[in-house]
Every structure is written in structure tokens, then in C-alpha cells.
């Protein structure tokens, strides 16, 4: 887990309940990586492109909700993919929406995965477990440029 602890997870989530539940699910699944939380689209972008951005490590995984205050998730994704520094950033869309249009647009803008938040917390736990296992353990990220 030493290796894992060095990897930062950026959670972009405006709903505090969801934030709490997500954090709980990560914790319950023994994903002990540092989790940075952005509560709207602007904060998410600031993490990458804000004045203090240089101090922020590029996250190993970004969990992006789509319905966000100020700037919505897809716009955030677009901006991230547009920048050469962050274009390879692993982004998993984690949202309540199962609208086809959202899924298509998400992938079109370069989302790496699209996960729908199940109502059933047990299923949510399972989803988070597999996410962590895959992206933080199994997946070999692109070398930072």
C-alpha cells in the first residue's frame, strides 16, 4: 500500500452525502490513498490550472461527477483533455445519470470510464472496490510529462 499511498485521488463531487459515501466506500475498500475533493467544476479546474496548481500532484485517478455547480463535469473534462499537461489524466465519470447522451459525450471527450452510481450502497461499494483495484493497482499510468 506504500506505493498506493503516493497516489492522489481527485474526487469532484458537489453532493456532501455522495462525497461522504464515496469516501466511506473507498475507506471500506481499504483504498487509503490521499483523496482531494473538489466541490464544483471551478475547484476541479483550479486543482489543475489554478495559481497553486504546481503544488498539486497529478492525481492517479479522477472521479468526476457530471452535474456540478459553476462548471459542469463534461466542460471540466474537455478542459483537462485540451491541455497537454493533463490530457493523459485518467478520468472516470462517476454519476447518477444514465442518460445516453451523457455517456456518449463523456466518452467523446475522452473519459476513461463511465460508472453510474447505483442506489444500492452495497453495489456502490462493489463498484468503488473494483475501481480502486483497477485504476490504482492494476492500471499502469502514463509516465508524467
Amino acid at each position: 500500500m506504500n506505493l498506493a499511498s503516493q497516489k492522489v485521488i481527485l474526487l469532484v463531487e458537489d453532493n456532501p452525502d455522495d462525497e461522504a459515501l464515496t469516501l466511506r466506500a473507498l475507506q471500506k475498500n481499504n483504498i487509503l490513498n490521499e483523496v482531494r475533493v473538489a466541490r464544483d467544476g471551478q475547484q476541479a479546474l483550479d486543482y489543475f490550472f489554478g495559481p497553486d496548481a504546481s503544488a498539486n500532484p497529478l492525481p492517479a485517478l479522477m472521479l468526476l461527477d457530471l452535474k456540478l455547480p459553476k462548471i459542469d463535469g463534461l466542460s471540466v473534462l474537455q478542459r483537462i483533455r485540451a491541455d497537454s499537461r493533463t490530457c493523459l489524466q485518467p478520468v472516470v465519470i462517476l454519476t447518477s445519470s444514465r442518460e445516453e447522451q451523457d455517456i456518449i459525450n463523456g466518452y467523446r471527450l475522452g473519459a476513461n470510464s463511465y460508472i453510474r452510481k447505483p442506489v444500492d450502497f452495497s453495489q456502490f461499494m462493489e463498484a468503488i472496490h473494483q475501481l480502486g483495484l483497477y485504476w490504482l493497482v492494476l492500471n499502469e499510468p502514463a509516465p508524467s510529462v
Partner: peptide, 16 residues
């Protein structure tokens, strides 16, 4: 799909 589900998730999640 977004907003009605979110509270349900909370209810279920926190009940759990």
C-alpha cells in the same frame, strides 16, 4: 435521473 436518485443513494448509503 440525477437528482431523485442522489437522495435515495444517501438514504440507502447511510442506512447501510
Amino acid at each position: 435521473s440525477h437528482d431523485l436518485r442522489a437522495p435515495l443513494r444517501s438514504i440507502d448509503g447511510f442506512s447501510q
